[in-house]
Write a protein that binds this DNA or RNA. Structure first.
Lengths: 256, 256
DNA sequence: CGTTTGATTGACCCCACTCAAACGTGGTGG
DNA sequence: CCACCACGTTTGAGTGGGGTCAATCAAACG
């Protein structure tokens, strides 16, 4: 785990930060670990040179014995269909994990690509497993992380399967906003690291639809859009769109 | 935290079968475990009275320290949206696992409901974790299982996000067929345990669309449909529809 | 048997995709 | 510094896949 930057004026090899000091540790391993236990994590976390935009962290089929934590930058993961088109299955912001799909016989089943200059922590499973045997809190933390990943995928299934384009866009922006807030960044003003194309792909929409809805929401005063810079002006209205505000659970059609 | 059946004509307490003898063990824990290690599993697997159709195995919000393996029957898992509608995220056939979503603070994030009379093995995580510390193969097996679950969810995202109704239906039938084959049952002739409504919900379609496509595929001689009994007559054609056959990767529109 | 529930079929229509063209914006080289 | 190009984004017009509504049909059940 090391630090990053675009213009490399300095070597950052010496900028190693321990997991205990890492401002992201709360996100990687939120609960149930003592400071001493956190310290032991340092022993297992590996370094890695920053990825440039569009670099692959891993590809479908790559063998793997590690999981990854985004330290800075961002990563998209995607799966490919037999017909050749692909579905983005996740965007990974700093402090978020990825790579849990890599432990099957065939290696990774999805591909991870940096959306911008990105650095990641590499956590070898073998060592992590050893530690799990010793540190009681860690195994539970791993289970919690696994559950969270599964749950997030389920929510995405819900989105793709049941939501209208408007709801998808609103859900997407709320998701980004919340995750920004978790990182202790501004929740109502952020820059998207992915192009419209990727947003559309992720949400199961056409690029044009994404563009139109951004414009529509801006027209309605819900958000402000300046290229990839998004400002959320009316959070309650966004929540209403996805059904989180008014307890009056909307009666929908009989689709599904 | 669990549901149970109402009318009980027989007690099944004596129907205990060891994991080593269980004809499903290969599916639950396929690799890397010696027979002796398999035997140790018996110590941790709990019995449970069969569920009747529509009984809940667990509900969203239920605390949990276990995962479940379907022994006979079948189970659907679903998540609920803020607006009240729900998305089925999985059908679980005999020998398949579920419940990996239950280890977060808030308990389970999805609900599991029996599609028919169903019995499950209950595997407490606490004991499983203890065993993982002792048996080297088990931890890797758990990782493999986790990866598989994540991968399956990803493929479902691909389906919901990128496939046409025709491709979804074909993919669904191929999936069931393959899993039937894994269970050493007929791959080309099976009875669906779920109603059309659930298939539609799962695939992100309307019931009418499912019905129409079943009819259409039957008309084309690809399958035979008799209520819930499905016969696959032209497997290659099904594979062609989802793009698994002809290497000529279809060039699709610019959606996504 | 009547009733209920699930499945099918037909007619209609709308949301989101497609096609197409224009519009910044950023990077590059002259 | 500006002209140019490439790419991502926006906007408009038209259309079709799949949803909605409604009626019918077939099993299962009491």
């Amino acid at each position: 785990m090391n630090e990053v930057n675009k213009p490399q004026l300095v070597t950052f090899d010496r900028l190693k930060v321990s997991c205990a000091q890492c401002n992201l540790n709360e996100l990687c391993f939120p609960h149930g670990m003592s400071p001493e236990e956190m310290g032991s994590l340092d022993a297992v976390v590996e370094q890695r040179k920053p990825l440039q935009k569009n670099d692959h962290l891993y590809r479908e089929g790559d063998a793997s014995n590690a999981i990854y934590a985004v330290r800075s930058g961002s990563v998209k993961t995607l799966v490919e269909s037999p017909n050749g088109d692909e579905q983005i299955v996740g965007f990974h912001l700093p402090g978020e994990l990825l790579g849990l799909d890599g432990f099957m016989e065939g290696g990774h089943t999805c591909t991870a690509i940096a959306l911008e200059t990105t650095s990641v922590c590499v956590i070898p499973m073998l060592k992590l497993e050893e530690m799990c045997g010793v540190l009681p809190g860690l195994q539970h933390q791993m289970n919690r992380i696994m559950s969270k990943v599964v749950t997030e995928d389920h929510l995405m299934l819900l989105m793709l399967g049941k939501m209208s384009a408007e709801e998808k866009i609103a859900t997407f922006m709320l998701s980004i906003s919340r995750r920004m807030k978790e990182r202790h960044w501004k929740a109502s003003e952020f820059v998207l690291s992915m192009p419209r194309q990727d947003i559309a792909n992720y949400l199961g929409l056409a690029v044009e639809t994404v563009s139109r809805l951004f414009a529509q929401y801006q027209e309605a005063g819900i958000i402000k859009v300046d290229r990839r810079r998004i400002s959320i002006l009316d959070l309650p209205r966004l929540k209403t769109i996805v059904g989180e505000n008014d307890g009056a659970k909307t009666v929908k059609g009989h689709k599904g």
